[in-house]
Nucleic acid binder design. Sequence first.
DNA 1: GGTTAGTGTCTTTTAACCGG
DNA 2: CCGGTTAAAAGACACTAACC
Length: 343
Amino acid sequence: MENEQGISQVQEYNFEEQAFIEKRANNYLPNNLVVSHAKYGRIEQKIFEFFINQIDFEKSRDISSTTGLIIKIPLKYISKHIKYADLKTHSATLGAKPITIEEISVETKKEKFTHIFPFIKIEYNPDKGFLEFYTNPQISPYLFFLEKQYAKYKFENVLSFKSIYTTPMYRLLRMHIGQNRNMFVYSIEEIRKILGVDADKYTNLKDFKKYVIEPAKKELADSPYECINFEYESTGKKIRNVTHLTFTILDAVTISHREKEELTDALKKIADPDYLSRAASVILARDYNMTNHLMSKILLDGELLTKFVTLDIELNNGVHPKVKNRTAWILTCLNLVKKKSKI
DNA sequence: GGTTAGTGTCTTTTAACCGG
DNA sequence: CCGGTTAAAAGACACTAACC
């Protein structure tokens, strides 16, 4: 009955059991998982969000890839939203589907992917009174990758959606809002993958807009929990060869200011220049290859520093997929490239 | 079990392209 | 500059699965 936190051993893996926390309003998902690719149905999405809702990131931040989580949801909470028969079939298909994470390798600069199955066991047991998720320990590094930021979004909102494309779109928008960005561009191919659209579906852009983006847009605009309005337009040549979609979040500023936590958090970081420069110096040393002179120049100049941090976050989240050499690119953006003709 | 939103397929319209 | 060609976009409509 009591949900004590404890360690139990199954096969060669450890599991950390997390106690159920009632009424958690927000779900947090690492940005690398926001832009990962998984084709979930509506019910699978709901089950997955119930799982995400209960992850205690603070408690488990040092978890390793040999330790999985046990997440328990009291049956009375989940039965309000998902019927037993649906839960039974769709939790099985959820467990069978991998999440695909695509990245650009730091060393070889080539594309790479990881298919990962998030759960090794999902158990429904009325005697215990819980739906239990046993995560694949291999997913722990992705769930708890602290260098990346998290998208924060409302759990109730996700449960209320009808279209399967609204949830991933909502998480994507929240990710960008969380980074104070109100405009972003994705290739058709990429946005299709993020939203989990099958390759053979909506091959016409018109159908893609009509049945994927428009329903998501409408639902988000009408949401009683948190409405987000966004526009999008085709980028590239008109009519033929539309390659990218440019999204603009209309009231991103209002949204981020409405949330007190985010606002005070942001203010704290701006007011504390040490926080920013400490974080930046770690990133500079680890991910970039430049002279100490250039590094200190960035760290000591407030304007350069904030610009650097913004660009670095964008790089980490695939906003500039074509960049091969981070150092050279970012130095050019910061106007720090030596020009021989001058001086 | 009825209603509605989502999906598949076929037809029509549109505008970029291209050769003269 | 024009008009035919072509592929994408838009429209029409029937079917189907999900939801209440």
